[in-house]
Amino acid sequence: MDDLILTPNIDGADDFYAELLANHEGLDKADSDVLNARLVLVLANHIGNRAILTQALAAAALKKEV
């Protein structure tokens, strides 16, 4: 069974977070929503694994682990 990584896994966490915010800078709410939607899809495709994606959806919804 593949498990979603829910422990720290990004090198340079602060850098990543700043980059994420920077990409939204100057965008209005609607454009930010669109960007987020595309980002979710791009990342989901990269993960690819259906079981992991289901776990990720549950984790994002702050549900107990499934």
Binding site: D33, V34, A37, R38, V40, L41, V42
Partner: peptide
């Protein structure tokens, strides 16, 4: 929004 994101991508 998600549908349009799929189409744009």
């Amino acid at each position: 929004i998600l549908r349009d994101a799929v189409l744009d991508l």
